[in-house]
Every structure is written in C-alpha cells, then in structure tokens.
Amino acid sequence: MILSWAMSILRVSTPLIFASLGGLMSERSGVINIALEGLMLIGAFTAAVVALMTHSPYLGLMAAIVAGALGGLFYAFCVLKLKANQIISGTAINLLAMGMIPLILKILYGSTGATPNLEMNERFLSFPLVLLVFICALIFALFKYTHLGLWISFSGEHPDALESAGISSDKIRWFALTCSGILASIGGASVSIYLSSGYSRNMIGGRGFMSLAAMILGRWRPKTTVLACLFFGLCDVIQMRLQSANLSIALPTQLIQIIPYLMTLIVLTGLVGKSIAPKALGK
C-alpha cells in the first residue's frame, strides 16, 4: 500500500521535478522563466510525434531534448540578445506553443486535439525515473561542487562580481537557459510518453507553472525544490485516488481536481514567508 502510493507520487512528480529543476537553472542564473509551460508543451508534443513515427520512445525523448534546447536557445536569444522583457517573452513562448501545436497536429493527423494513441512498446515504462535520479544527482553536484555551479549562482546574485572575475555572465545565462529548455522539455515528454500514451490538448495543464511554484517553495535550492515537487505530487495522487474512491457524499470531480492547484496557491501565499530569490533575477 505504502509502496504503491510512493510509486504513484514519484510517477506524477517526475515531470514536475524535471521542469522545476529547469526553472531553477534559469532563475539561479538570473533569468525569470515563465516559459516552462510552453517548453513542456513542446517537449510533450515532439516526443509523442517522434515516438509515433519511429516507434521508439528513446528517439522521441531525444527529439524532445533537441526541441527543448532550441526552445531554450530561442528564449535566450529574446532576453539576452534582444534584451526583451523576460515576462513578456516567456508568455509569448507559452502562447506560441499553445497555438502552434494544434496547427501542426491538424496538418499531421487531421485533428487539432490529440495524436493517435501510442502502443505500449512506443512508451516508457520506467526509464524516465532512472533519468530523473541521474539528473537530480547531476544538478545537486553541479551547485555543490563545481565551479560552473558557482558561476551560475553568481550570475544570478551579482553578475558584476562574476564579470570582474573574468567570466561572462551572458555566456553562463545562454548555457543555463538552454539547459532549462532541455529539462522542461524532458518534463513534458515524460507526461506524453511515460504517464500517458500520446499528446492530447491541455495535457500539461499548468504543470509548468506548478513547477515554478515548487521552485519558489523550494527557495531556489535543488533539494528543497525536489521535495516541493514531491509534495505537489502527493496532492495530485490524493486528488486522483479521491476521484476513483467511492465516497459516501457525491463531490463534483472538478472540486477534487482543484486540490493540487489550491495547494499551490495556499502554499505560495501562506507558507513561503520571506522570499530569497536570486538578487539579480529579472535584471
């Protein structure tokens, strides 16, 4: 029983953890990333389409990584090269992803709503979990033990200090945003080819924003961010179990589905307290 709960929590948290670590990379380097939602959509869609075409989830994931990297680079181009406003460019990417995907779906499959269903062998059974552990370890180590982690963090806290030590904070941010795109995209892919079978409309359903919330709740630190994601995962599992349980009172499903979002709101407004965002965030 406990094991089954733990497994479900881990499963539903997987996309959140990938995406929020992506958000963390970006924001620790000093760039606000509300494009996570759009990047997740891109990842979910690309992975599903390529998995359908090639019958291999691994190739689907690879394609999602490439698409995510391109998305991250595009965002970096907007905010670093063109110096566009971060919130507006991020929103633009979200809207672009939401608009473009139905269009491509219509061209490819004649439907704007969803891709055809993936067969079992075109989906992942457990590989994303392995990848998750690996990525978590990598990012913990990055910030704790490496010079690169220190540079990313200084780029978000005091970019001038980094520059005066001879390292370009712009380069660091290009790198961090690309990583951010890749991670968010893997998060999206794990929704479409791991948790479900294929892409469908509204599949991400605000998970990108929830990841941001988890990152803020985790105070921009890798370990606490992962814990926050697991907490949101728990809320999601409760919500799902409540829906399938035979309750004596008939609660509308919408009311139950609202739980994870409600928790996000409560936690962010009530429990976070003093925010300790990177000092140069958004500048």
Binding site: H147, W151, A161, L162, I167
Partner: peptide
C-alpha cells in the same frame, strides 16, 4: 570565484 577556467572542474 573565477580562479579556474574549466567549468566542470570541482572546487
């Protein structure tokens, strides 16, 4: 900060 040029080297 910045005393090593290789990003992936350990502190």
């Amino acid at each position: 900060l910045g005393t090593i040029d290789y990003p992936w080297s350990l502190i």
